[in-house]
Design a protein around this nucleic acid. Structure first.
Length: 857
RNA sequence: GCCCGCUUGGCGGAAUGGUAGACGCAACGGACUUAAAAUCCGUAGGCCCUUUACCGGGCCGUCCCGGUUCAAGUCCGGGAGCGGGCACCA
């Protein structure tokens, strides 16, 4: 026996990683003569270690990249770092490490870990968003957007943490409190920078229809997020005031049912009235103090304050409506003011009951009597016949909406309009570790852009994190500059960009990562758009929407020629694991737990029984994490990759199990032995097909071609788990072949070549090694994808199922494409079939060629 | 509240409207071994019939109810459970 020498993954993986790097196999270059394919996985935040989610993400991308490469595409597959962000500042505060040091050290660690995965990446294009060579170009883009009218600065209410003295993103406000300080968050009006994403609201919505290689789910989420509402704007005259009050409604048909108007506490009119009305002022303050969290809103009562103002109904002479300030009216949706129609809107109804306002039904449900129809505790929001509404009476809701629109236009008090849920993108953050916003505030000149020649505006290195607030603002000298326009002393903007800005164009920068402009046009025109983008569904809205906006803005400013950055999108599932908890409530890492045969588990160190929790997404807080580095040490990258691809479809969550990893490892060793210790001497690769093949050899040979066809299709459809299963079936068949019959050695070699070639994108190191063991001299990663011979995909004899009344009674072997008469005859001759027919004559026989025969009696 | 998705053996999952359970994990029986690991062979949805055994056969079965069809895991309608997105959006 040659011995069960196990496959030495350490040596092999290192060897091929070095070979690929030495030959610059994956370095991409634009070549207009070849079709391109741009594969991209969402770049990681450099937290310090790669996690299983990364392993899954990059494995999926690598399979696509290597497969496309084999199909003859010029593949671009780059990697970089989403390197700005708050954790670096927290590290600085907590551990006194400079954010830059922390970040670059983490990048070095993670790059080393990623390299061990054997990914077909072009590392020469690596970028980090915290590098001035990246963010300087981002500053230039911002200034060009500013010049193009896509940027503005305005006062906005923001979440302000009074302890940390910083603005917080909505996601950082938990139950109305700052996530770090725990202090109640205040609403503060601050001057902030905005990108005018709403300018593209309609386009961003309409273009979703063209993204036919995006998941339906993501398109829907974006559609809801952009949120188009059609309705009407109505201008109400207010008694004693020159200016009308403009409201927005989606239900202009219910205008005759209006019983009040309500404006937001943040509305300019409320502000103005509050100056003369201390009670109103107090009411507004109370509204603002209320939490913005979901729970707070749920619990919050609908509160209103009657301003005493009276608004005139546009169509009912003499009828007036009271004007309230109400806590549930949002300032930044529509016009920040509404009319309330209690009969047909639940919230308005609740409000009306509370403040004893009239409830006037104007839509009568089908089947109800208009004279007696009343609204109780539940507003009626469905379609019906309009009543109590003058010229609208008798119309349905839709027609009435149109009619009101026309009438409002005719008397000049309103018009049909569309409003959007989408808000402009607030990009300023009071943080250090981000891209500085490149403007200068001058007393005399106002906002002055930093001249291009002075870019990048670099972050200063010498900052302190002892004081709360923005270190850039505290810096003794950084912000003091002279105005580029008038030369007088001025102040540099100390806000930095939201890190979502950094990730909104990095995929374009990869096209020309060292260029002295954001994107070299020719390079971008060749490589963009990204053909296949892969990442977590958690970015389904923000990152993807911002990037779609950025491409349009970059097109407008002449940097790219496309609107849509990602032609294809795939959202992968999460990696899950059981969680373990000790008696005393400590979470335990899987590596500190020993599973026993009876299904229970103990803490290895203490022998104490531990509670096994349900499988859930791996998270540091529950310690149900497995470090990729440890798995690669023990089993190798190929095993980790194979497990990631096996079992679960990539869009679903995957449970990481030790047993599953063992299974992948076993398969890799089987594959190794199959080539390393073949049952018979393999003929040379060039050996022609022998004249005679045994039936087993014939079956394996045909099977190899069927596998090529099936795997090619599965890979194209992202059904990697199925592709793995198909290749495993082929290798099972190869193992079963004893190799002694005529042509079997030849068929075995054909099958092995095929199996190794097909599995190459998934487990590239061992595949490369086996490919050479099989006598090939080219690197597998440079070999073309095999083609299935269509003639071998169909068998001479097919097994056809025979049903009687839809129930399977027999299977029969028939020549392929046998005549219907022959099929029928053979089927009816089956003893089992005649028994099932019970002596009755067939009423009908359905013959689906090569598949099924159904006899109806 | 609005919108969306999912539900198949002990588990992950396969299945162009056409033979449900491919492939794997776990399990069980056996071989090899002093032993273990590794490896190999075999069993395997449930219930039942036939048989010494093999071979065979029947009924049920893809969350539930109903429908379309020669034929439904798959299509249509209704419901339940689980999961996700948005949410005081006028």
């Amino acid at each position: 026996m040659t011995g069960m020498a196990r496959y030495n993954f350490k040596e092999t993986e290192a060897k091929w990683q070095a070979a690929w790097a030495d030959h610059r196999v994956f370095a991409a270059a634009a070549d207009p003569a070849r079709p391109k394919y741009y594969v991209l996985e969402m770049f990681p935040y450099p937290s310090g270690r790669i996690h299983m989610g990364h392993v899954r993400n990059y494995t999926l991308g690598d399979v696509v990249a290597r497969h496309r490469r084999a199909l003859g595409f010029n593949v671009l597959h780059p990697m970089g770092w989403d390197a700005f962000g708050l954790p670096a500042e927290n590290a600085a505060r907590d551990s006194k490490i400079h954010p830059a040091t922390w970040t670059y050290d983490n990048i070095a660690n993670m790059r080393a870990e990623l390299r061990r995965m054997g990914l077909s990446l072009d590392w020469e294009r690596e970028i980090a968003t915290c590098h001035p060579g990246y963010y300087g170009h981002q500053q230039r883009l911002f200034l060009e957007f500013l010049a193009a009218g896509l940027v503005y600065r305005k006062e906005a209410f923001v979440n302000w943490d009074p302890v940390d003295q910083t603005v917080l993103a909505n996601e950082q406000v938990i139950d109305g409190k700052g996530w770090r300080s725990g202090a109640p968050v205040e609403k503060r009006k601050l001057s902030q920078w905005f990108l005018k994403i709403t300018a593209y609201a309609e386009e961003l919505l309409d273009a979703l229809k063209t993204l036919d290689r995006w998941p339906e789910k993501v398109r829907l989420m974006q559609e809801n997020w952009i949120g188009r509402s059609s309705g009407a704007e109505v201008r109400f005259k207010i008694q004693g005031r020159p200016e009308p009050l403009t409201i927005f409604t989606t239900r202009p048909d219910t205008l005759f049912g209006a019983s009040f108007l309500a404006i937001s506490p943040d509305h300019a009119l409320a502000d103005e009235l509050a100056k003369a009305d201390p009670k109103l002022k107090a009411f507004i303050a109370e509204c603002r103090a209320r939490g913005t969290s979901e729970a707070a809103i749920e619990a919050a009562e609908k509160l209103g304050y009657d301003t005493g103002l009276k608004a005139a109904h546009p169509f009912l002479t003499g009828k007036t409506l009271p004007v309230y300030v109400a806590n549930f009216v949002l300032i930044d949706y529509g016009s920040g003011a509404i009319f309330g129609c209690p009969a047909h809107d639940q919230r308005d109804l609740d409000f009306a009951r509370k403040y004893k306002l009239p409830v006037i039904p104007v839509v009568c449900p089908p089947g109800e009597d208009a004279a007696t129809f009343k609204v109780g505790d539940v507003a009626y929001t469905e379609n019906g016949t309009i009543i109590n509404s003058e010229f609208l009476n008798g119309l349905d809701v839709e027609t009435a909406k149109q009619e009101v629109g026309k009438r409002l236009g005719a008397i000049g008090t309103g018009h049909p309009t569309t409003v959007w849920r989408l808000r402009d993108w607030l990009v300023s953050r009071q943080r250090y570790w981000g891209c500085p916003i490149p403007v200068i505030h001058c007393e005399a000149c106002g906002i002055v852009p930093v001249p291009f020649k002075d870019l990048p505006v670099r972050l200063p290195d010498d900052v302190t994190f002892e004081r709360p607030g923005n270190p850039l603002d505290h810096h003794p000298t950084w912000k003091h500059v002279n105005c580029p326009a008038c030369g007088k002393p001025a102040r540099r903007e100390t806000d930095t960009f939201d890190t979502f800005v950094d990730s909104s164009w990095y995929f374009a920068r990869y096209c020309s990562p060292r260029a002295d402009q954001p994107v070299i046009k020719a390079e971008g025109d060749y490589w963009l758009a990204v053909d296949q983008y892969i990442g977590g569904v958690e970015h389904a809205i923000l990152h993807l929407l911002y990037s779609r906006f950025f491409m349009r803005a970059m097109k407008k400013t002449g940097h790219v020629s496309i609107d849509e950055p990602f032609a294809g999108l795939f959202t992968q599932g999460m990696v899950c694991h059981e969680s373990y908890r000790s008696n005393d409530g400590r979470w335990l890492y899987p590596e500190d737990v020993t599973k026993r045969d009876d299904g229970t588990a103990v803490e290895t160190a203490t022998g104490q029984l531990v509670a096994i929790g349900r499988r859930e997404v791996m998270s540091k807080s529950k310690k149900n994490v497995v470090a990729p580095a440890a798995i690669i040490d023990t089993y190798g990258a190929d095993t980790a990759r194979l497990f990631m691809l096996s079992d679960s479809p990539p869009e679903r969550d995957l449970e990481w199990t030790e047993a599953g990893v063992d299974g992948a490892w076993r398969y890799i060793n089987r594959l190794w032995r199959l080539v390393d210790e073949p049952k018979v001497a393999l003929p040379a690769a060039s050996e022609p097909k022998p004249a005679k093949l045994s039936p087993a050899a014939e079956a394996v040979w045909r099977g190899a071609h069927k596998t090529i066809a099936a795997v090619s299709e599965s890979l194209a459809e992202f059904r990697f788990n199925v592709a793995v299963a198909q290749i495993r079936t082929l290798t099972n068949d190869l193992e079963a072949l004893d190799g002694k019959g005529p042509g079997e050695a030849w068929a075995l070699r054909q099958g092995l070549d095929t199996a190794v070639r097909l599995i190459g994108p998934m487990i590239p190191h061992i595949a490369e090694e086996l490919w050479h063991k099989l006598g090939h001299t080219e690197m597998l990663c440079n070999e073309p994808w095999p083609k299935a011979d269509p003639a071998l995909l169909v068998d001479e004899t097919v097994t056809v199922a025979v049903q009687v009344n839809g129930k399977l009674r027999a299977t029969v072997a028939l020549p392929r494409d046998a005549s219907e008469a022959q099929a029928r005859e053979v089927a009816l001759a089956q003893p089992n079939v005649t028994t099932a027919m019970g002596g009755k004559p067939p009423r009908k026989v359905i013959v689906v060629p090569n598949r099924i025969i159904n006899i109806v009696v």
